[in-house]
Amino acid sequence: MTKQSITEIRTLLREDNLTETDIALFKQDTRKGVQQLIATYEKNKLKKQALEKDFYEMCTYERNCRLAGKQLIAGIDEAGRGPLAGPVVAAAVILPDNFKLLGLNDSKQISVSKRNEFFDIIKESAISYGISIIDSRMIDKVNIFEATKLAMKEALLQLNPPADHVLIDAVKLDNLPCTSEHIIKGDSKSISIAAASILAKVTRDRLMNEIHEEYPMYDFKSNMGYGTKYHMEKLKEYGISPYHRKSFAPVRENI
C-alpha cells in the first residue's frame, strides 16, 4: 500500500476524524515530517482537553444554580474602575445552557484579537445582554464604587428576558429584582461573569480608542486611561481633558 503524502496526513489530522489505530500507524511512519505532525497533533489535543476541563469547571456555579431551579442566570462584571480617565463600563449577560466557548476566561487573560472575536460570539449567542456606560462626570459626582454599582444595576435591568439569578464579580449589590451572589475573582470562576467581562472590557477599550482620536496627546489607545508614566507626564504638560476623573488624586493635583 502506498504511503499517504505528508500533505494528505496533515489534512487528516486537521480534520481530526482519525481512530487511535490510524494515529498508531502514523507513529510508525519514520518520515520526520510525519513525526512532527503527530507531535503537534498530540500537543494540540492535550491543550484542547485542558481547555475542556477548565470550561467545565467554570460552569460549576451555573450548574449549581440550575440544580436549584434557576433558569435565566446572568453574569455581571465591570471594566474601568482603576483608570484616571474614561468611563466605567458594566455588562450583564445570560448565556444559553448549551453555550460553549473554549478559552473563555477573565478578559485580562485573553489577547486583544481573541477578546474581539469572543465579543461577537457572546453577543450572537446570548439569550440577552446589557451594557451600561457611566462617564467621568458621574464618577466624580458619586465616587467610583457607587458608579460601578450603578453601571452593574443598569446593565442587569437591560436584560430581556430578565434574569432570575445573577452572579456578580466581587461587588455585592442590594435591592435587585432577583436573587444574587457575589464571587471574588468571579471572572475566572464563572463562565457567565467571564462573558460579561469580555463585553465590558471590549466596549470600554473601543470607547477609549475613540477618545484617543480626540485627545491623542495622552495616548489613551495604549494606556486605556490608566496612570502610566507617559500618561502622567502628559497630564502635567497639558493638564486634564474632559474625560479625566477630577475626584482621583493624580488628576486633581493637575487641575
Rank of each mutant, 00 (worst) to 15 (best):
K229S: 14
K229N: 12
E213P: 00
K201M: 04
E210P: 00
D164V: 00
A196P: 09
S125M: 05
T203S: 13
I184L: 15
A155V: 11
I144N: 04
I198P: 05
Y129K: 07
L176D: 06
E214C: 08
K221P: 02
A170S: 14
E146M: 01
R204C: 04
S192W: 14
N160C: 02
A151T: 09
F145G: 00
S128L: 06
D140V: 13
C178E: 10
I240F: 14
M217G: 00
L207N: 08
Y226V: 08
L156N: 10
D169M: 05
I122W: 11
M224C: 03
M152T: 06
L199D: 11
S180W: 14
V202I: 04
R137P: 00
K172M: 15
I168F: 08
L159K: 01
P161L: 10
L199Y: 12
G186K: 07
F145E: 01
I198M: 09
A200Q: 07
S190R: 11
K234L: 02
E154K: 14
S188T: 14
P177E: 08
G225N: 03
K221Q: 14
Y129W: 09
T203P: 00
E233N: 03
P177T: 10
K221F: 07
K141P: 00
K149L: 04
I168Q: 06
G225Q: 13
V202P: 06
K153D: 11
I144S: 05
P162H: 10
L156P: 07
D164W: 06
Y226L: 09
M152G: 10
L199G: 00
I121F: 10
A147T: 00
R206G: 00
V202Q: 03
K201T: 06
I211Y: 15
S125N: 13
A200M: 05
K149I: 04
K149H: 12
L159S: 08
F145H: 02
K234R: 14
I240K: 15
K149S: 09
N175L: 09
E124H: 12
V142Q: 12
S188V: 05
N143C: 03
L235W: 07
L207A: 08
I127C: 04
I127P: 04
R204S: 03
